[in-house]
Structure formats: structure tokens, C-alpha cells
């Protein structure tokens, strides 16, 4: 009265299931954070040229020969004499609403102030934790080298995008 054949088959299957379960466990428990966590604001440099005959204004991207960038309240440089720069990426303050930078273009210095909202604790995952994303409200600067600043994209997150255009 004992279904021994099925019992053996069943126990054999149990071992297959255990090994499958091991596979699932190793697939699902990921210890390392594999998501992008860096949130940076990106600047691109442009000049405006007016066509002599048609009077049409056109934007042209250009490279800065050498650039120095640091925050107003910090001594360490984020960019130090970087040559031939097309775009720069800068972090914004995660827990304050205003970030000021001192930017030296070749030998001319300007101060740029960014006013922003912070979306604290934007959750990624248990492994990656939280990040802070920003929304640009306003961007102002002194006008020694910079002619004007245009906000292209207000949302700053982990996506690689140009947020501000600096016109010379």
C-alpha cells in the first residue's frame, strides 16, 4: 500500500526545484547598485551671430579655450584650467535652494547663481538608496564674458541632457 515509485520521483523533483530556487535567489538578490546615481547640471556654450544680409540670428556652439569653475563658498575647483571645453557639468546643492559658481573663461571671470527646488529622497532601490533631483527656477549671472543664460531644460535628474545655454 505504498506508492514508492512516485515518492522517489517526487523526491528527485524536489532536488531539481531546490537547484532552480538557488538560481532564482542568485538572480534576484543583487547586492551592488547598478543604477545611475549622479545628478548634474549641464552647461553648453553658444554664440549668437546675425547674418549680415538676412538679419537672421543663428546659434553656434563653440569651445572655451580654458575654464576654471568652483563654487562661491568652496575653495576646491571642479574644473581647473580645462582646455577646449564644449560643455561643463556641475553639481547643485542637495539641501539648499541656491548654488553659486565662479566661472573663469580664459581670463574673464563671471559669477553664476542658480535658484532651484530640490526633490529630496527620490527613491531608486534598497541597494542604491535615494538621490536628490532638482528643478531650475532661475539662472542669473554677471555679464563680463556671459551675454545671457537661457534655460533649456528645468528638470535635473540622472538623464544626460543640456540644461543651460550660455551665450557669449
Amino acid at each position: 500500500m505504498f506508492n514508492s515509485g512516485y515518492l522517489i520521483k517526487n523526491i528527485f523533483f524536489l532536488f531539481i526545484l531546490i537547484s532552480m530556487q538557488m538560481g532564482f535567489v542568485s538572480c534576484t538578490t543583487d547586492d551592488e547598485c547598478r543604477k545611475e546615481k549622479d545628478v548634474n547640471m549641464q552647461f553648453a556654450f553658444y554664440t549668437e551671430t546675425v547674418h549680415p544680409t538676412t538679419q537672421v540670428i543663428s546659434k553656434t556652439a563653440f569651445n572655451i579655450d580654458s575654464i576654471w569653475v568652483k563654487a562661491l563658498d568652496k575653495d576646491s575647483f571642479i574644473y581647473k584650467n580645462k582646455k577646449n571645453v564644449k560643455t561643463i557639468i556641475l553639481p547643485l546643492k542637495k539641501f539648499e535652494n541656491q548654488t553659486d559658481f565662479i566661472v573663469q573663461f580664459n581670463d574673464v571671470t563671471d559669477t553664476i547663481s542658480i535658484f532651484h527646488d530640490n526633490n529630496e529622497n527620490y527613491f531608486l532601490s534598497l541597494e542604491c538608496g535615494c538621490i536628490v533631483t532638482h528643478t531650475i527656477k532661475e539662472a542669473v549671472s554677471t555679464n563680463h564674458f556671459i551675454k545671457s543664460i537661457e534655460i533649456l531644460n528645468t528638470e535635473i535628474n540622472t538623464t544626460d541632457a543640456t540644461h543651460l545655454q550660455i551665450f557669449h
Binding site: 563654487a71 553639481p91 539641501f95 529622497n121 538608496g129
Partner: peptide, 18 residues
Amino acid sequence: NMTNVNVYDEYWDVSKTY
């Protein structure tokens, strides 16, 4: 519960824990 979630502002060297 999710505790000890740390956010670090590297350049300005400040952090907050949630």
C-alpha cells in the same frame, strides 16, 4: 521600514539620513 538611507553631497561635504 526602510532606515538609514543616506544622501551625501560630495562636493559640499554635507549629508542627510532618512
